[in-house]
Design a protein around this nucleic acid. Structure first.
Length: 426
DNA sequence: TCTGGGGTCCTAGGACCC
DNA sequence: TCTGGGGTCCTAGGACCC
């Protein structure tokens, strides 16, 4: 059996943890640049605040109802996420936890006796909440897709379920699927939902009974087949090895305000490259492929409309590396090639791939010493920056003023990672 | 005036090989 | 004049996830 543990309105819960006065007030958290709403508490949902909706479109209802609004504070959320995950690892064992996202993890409960599942799930929930202060919901079922179904219902019917649902018998599974619309099933996106509804398939139980061959033809080939099998209780999406490394690392941001100068674009690209290289080194890997892209504001019908257009350039490095210097050296010419004077740039980003473990980098005898020195330098910079959860040490190419940086006007304090922002009790 | 960021997996089609 | 069958690898793009 598999459990999914999911933090309730995670970002909002993090904010409330240090602001107990907000416990009965609706709270929302905004995306980078304060653009979209990316987390809402139940109270905010009840007011009709839309998920992933633009902030400005919801401003009226937010102000009228005294909703507390925060810019995203990734320092804080990352730190609390680590505590939640560590707690679960302690409870069920390191290699039985698959961190699926910042606020969710799959747990392998294969070794738990069937009659103990509910008690174990409840204990996981209570312990995480007691140790971290973050509320979670737990869904347990024979497959990942069904555990997500269980988890969703445990949230929806919080009062009756106490935030825990175990789907075990055929009857429990059928009842749960009957209560779940196809578009609420993990793996069914907008396109598939439209197709299914067209066929008169609207709930999870109907979807479960769709012929496998129909799913292969109409729901994305093997992806669709897997989905149907998972709904039937046959696990087809295995638990991931916690040691698996990322195959692609991207850093991209909208600019705080539109950018017109090559100089600013170069600073941004150098900054993003530094961040991505740091993530790469954290998983002890090197990369040989770098893609740089920009998003410009297109124009439609000669009048202004939001109509973004993107352009990419990439280069394959002669040797995989994890050295920020190297990446910057290759990335800056790419952005120069992409730049067209006069265009309005909204966003830039870089993607590293061709990722290999850094102990398997093809050796070059003549650069060995320099490489070792560089590695030491990188480690030192990473250690200092990690201890501050910020890029205290940066490359000159990243610029100093950085007036393209994103807006975060409503960010709370970094309570858990800065001495001078500690929570104070008077 | 204003619409996030970071991933995964799959498929189709082209280039290339024997 | 006629032009196979089987395979690999790579890339772009789509769909989906939180």
């Amino acid at each position: 059996m598999i459990a999914i543990v999911d933090c309730n309105s995670f970002y909002c819960s993090c904010e409330r943890l240090f602001r107990p006065d907000l416990n009965n007030r609706p709270v929302v958290v905004l995306s980078n640049n304060d653009g979209c709403i990316i987390a809402r508490t139940d109270e905010a949902k009840a007011l009709g605040v839309g998920m992933a909706g633009p902030y400005y479109q919801n401003k009226e209802v937010i102000e009228k109802n005294n909703v507390a609004v925060f810019s995203s504070n990734y320092n804080l959320y990352g730190d609390l996420s680590m505590r939640v995950m560590d707690t679960m690892r302690f409870l069920v064992g390191d290699n039985r936890v698959e961190v699926y996202s910042v606020d969710e993890a799959f747990l392998n409960l294969d070794d738990v006796a069937e009659n103990k599942l509910a008690a174990v799930a409840k204990n996981i929930k209570d312990t995480v909440e007691m140790w971290t202060g973050i509320k979670v919901s737990v869904g347990v079922a024979p497959s990942k897709v069904l555990s997500k179904v269980a988890n969703r219902l445990s949230k929806k019917y919080k009062k009756e379920t106490q935030g825990v649902i175990v789907l075990h018998t055929a009857q429990q599974i059928q009842e749960a699927l009957l209560k779940t619309k196809v578009e609420d099933i993990w793996g069914v996106g907008r396109q598939s939902a439209i197709k299914l509804n067209h066929q008169g398939i609207t709930d999870g139980w109907q979807l479960r009974n769709v012929p496998v061959e129909w799913a292969r033809k109409n729901l994305g080939g093997v992806v669709g087949v897997r989905l149907i099998k998972e709904l039937n209780g046959t696990p087809c999406i295995p638990m991931k090895d916690p040691l698996e490394v990322k195959k692609m690392i991207a850093t991209t941001r909208m600019f705080g305000k539109p950018v017109y100068e090559l100089k600013d674009l170069k600073e941004a690209v150098a900054t993003y490259v530094s961040r991505a290289a740091e993530k790469l080194r954290r998983q002890h890997c090197a990369a040989s492929f770098i893609d740089v892209f920009v998003v410009t504001n297109g124009f439609k019908n000669a009048k202004y409309e939001y109509n973004p257009q993107s352009a990419h350039r990439h280069v394959i490095l002669p040797n995989a590396t994890s050295n920020t210097n190297e990446f910057i050296k290759y990335a800056l010419p790419l952005i120069e090639m992409l730049f067209t004077p006069g265009l309005k740039y909204l966003k830039a980003g870089i993607i590293l791939s061709g990722i290999v473990p850094d102990n398997s980098i093809q050796g070059n005898l003549f650069i060995e010493d320099a490489t070792k020195q560089q590695r030491t330098l990188m480690n030192t910079i990473d250690n200092i920056n990690f201890s501050q959860r910020d890029d205290i040490i940066k490359y000159a190419a990243s610029g100093l003023k950085r007036n393209w940086k994103m807006r975060q006007e409503l960010r709370s304090k970094r309570f858990t990672s800065r001495w001078n922002e500690l929570y104070e009790i008077k």
